[in-house]
Design a protein around this nucleic acid. Structure first.
Length: 289
DNA sequence: AACACTGCCAACCGCCTCCAT
DNA sequence: CATGGAGGCGGTTGGCAGTGT
């Protein structure tokens, strides 16, 4: 540590040698990054950090280093450990509160379902488009309902494996994409309970199903008929309950207009755009870099 | 008090990419 | 173009502390 503070980062092999350590450079690097760095934040993850990790994980998948890059003072290792030991378990436990008959393979994690569906050749580029059989659709909805987090499970569908198809539930047969909105996004208030934070607003379960209509990014989309608006102008959000209709000029996921780039097909999902807007989380107690 | 169990976390391992030669 | 070293990354392991029995 003192060597690093004195000389700064250089070739790790040299550092190991010059500092008189019986270690390989790689080991030194790891020790510095994960433990010795003075800018590391110690202690438990805050609820806001949890929220952000879940959100980022839904976008980036297990790209811990990229997630860590957006959490000041946290390391990829730390986040990975936190995810594997805490969040994953919590999501799993909460999903088990539902009937085992709700879905067939309880060992599956949300991502597994996504992978499974992906493996079924339901990628957006495929001829099958994004049509889900009733079974798969039920599986997906199940995760929306069951993971205790409509937010995380919804976003689970945006995993790294899904970057080509960020919205697997988007059914090209319809003008509207249907999925549940996270409670925390619909109402940025925080509660103490994990389940509360991440939303127990299961689609339909509480009679609150929300539909989000997003102009399709594909040429055969008919959504531009929406009030004659072009897809660059706004997204329509339909709340099924109360039959109310809300139109948002910006976005609801902090996604911005990143899915509507001029030449951007859905397979060219603007990940950076997604991530840029993570910092716009209203309840973050810190600004992201 | 002793033992088993569990959770956390630092460290290790193997693979990959990048880059200089 | 092939090769090797360095760095980066994600998955996994093992030790330790805390908790339960």
């Amino acid at each position: 540590m003192s060597y690093m503070l004195r000389n700064g980062q250089g070739c790790w092999s040299d550092i190991a040698r010059n500092a008189g350590l019986q270690r390989c450079g790689k080991s030194c690097r790891l020790r510095w990054i994960n433990y010795l760095r003075p800018d590391l934040k110690r202690g438990a993850f805050s609820p806001q950090e949890e929220e952000l990790i879940i959100h980022l994980h839904s976008i980036l998948g297990n790209r811990w280093s990229q997630i860590a890059a957006r959490l000041p003072g946290r390391t990829d290792n730390e986040i990975k450990n936190f995810w594997n030991s805490t969040i994953k378990k919590r999501l799993k436990n909460s999903s088990q509160t539902h009937s085992p008959n709700d879905y067939h393979d309880s060992s599956l994690e949300p991502r597994d379902v996504v992978d499974k569906i992906n493996a079924m050749g339901m990628g957006v580029g495929g001829s099958s488009g994004m049509l889900l059989s009733m079974h798969e659709h039920e599986m997906m909805n199940m995760y929306m309902d069951s993971s205790s987090s409509s937010f995380s499970s919804m976003n689970t569908m945006l995993t790294s494996n899904q970057l080509d198809n960020p919205f697997p539930l988007l059914d090209n047969r319809h003008d509207q994409m249907v999925f549940s909105l996270p409670t925390c996004m619909a109402k940025p208030e925080m509660t103490d309970e994990f389940d509360g934070r991440y939303g127990v607003m299961g689609g339909g379960k509480m009679g609150v199903e929300r539909e989000i209509s997003i102009p399709g990014s594909q040429s055969n989309s008919t959504t531009e008929e929406n009030n004659g608006a072009t897809q660059n102008e706004y997204y329509t959000i339909e709340m099924k309950n109360n039959n109310s209709k809300v139109e948002e000029s910006d976005n609801i996921f902090g996604v911005g207009n990143h899915w509507q780039g001029e030449n951007m097909g859905i397979g060219e999902w603007d990940l950076e755009g997604l991530l840029e807007n993570v910092s716009s989380f209203p309840f973050l107690d810190f600004q992201l870099q």
